[in-house]
Amino acid sequence: MKSDRIKFLVFALVVLLMPLPLSGGYLTNVLIFVGINSVLALGLNLLLGYAGQISLGQAAFFGLGAYGSGVLTTAYGLNPWLAMIAVAVCVALFAFAIGFPVLRLKGHYLAMATLGVGVIVNIAFNETVDLTGGPSGLSGIPNLSIGSLTFDSDLKNYYLVWVFALGMILLSLNLVNSRFGRGLRAIHDSEVAARVMGVNARLMKVQVFTLSAFMSAIMGSLYCHVMTFISPNSFGFHFSVELLTMIVIGGLGSVYGSILGALLLTMLPEMLRTFQDYDIIVYGLLLITMTIYLPGGLVEGIPALFRRLVPAKKVTEGSDA
């Protein structure tokens, strides 16, 4: 337990000191989105990696958070912080309500149902033009502020997002080591066995689904205030799949794995830019090879690779190319 706490503290320190070497450069901006994606991936990982329930509609909750805050602050002039809380609570209630029928489904039927929810929500963003601005997007969303401090630069937004992210990461770390977390893992291994042991599997699945929706909605609100512009195609099926990819690549059932996955996939387009037009091919190849050769994700793969390479002192490029 103690080593966990040290691990987190080191991680938090790295995060908080990170902007110093970057000196306000453009990477600070990218790392804001890494923070947002980390929490989104983490929410999905709690659901999928711990409780074993797939969701292909995670972007919908993110979008609801973003649009909720965006609309309430622009059209109705609500205080952004108040809007954030109100929206997150509403999204959580929505997830709780649909959670019962949806999470009764299993396997690919569950995938289909969550995908359906995602598609419907996205169509709603597109069609309620008077409210959301439709496909051409909603602009003029204010930045967040506390007193006279307005979060209008990359550096300020970086700390804003990462403070939230660190809070949620800490919450998740505590959660997965709690009775609740053990219950989730029991459901993952065998729902029937978990029930026999007295775990209220149905309720717990809905609870973790609600929690992940809540986390996504908060990040959605932050996203809209950082970007000050949102449009529906940022919250589509494509993004749900990207989140799924993040946690599989990073490591299922690992809090830090989610962050690693988010970091890699958010930075990847940047690193692949040297390949120019071929980047999409390299991206596809990477997904396939990493899944084949690092089945436990980066979080298991990197230390394993490290152990294999260090004593042998012989770098075998083929194993991770």
Partner: peptide
Amino acid sequence: RPLKNATPLMLIIITIGASILIRGLVML
């Protein structure tokens, strides 16, 4: 085939990777 003990989820990611790859090749 190279996957041993693959979970359905890994297979999903692999097929997603393949679809991106095929789409990219056709585009180029």
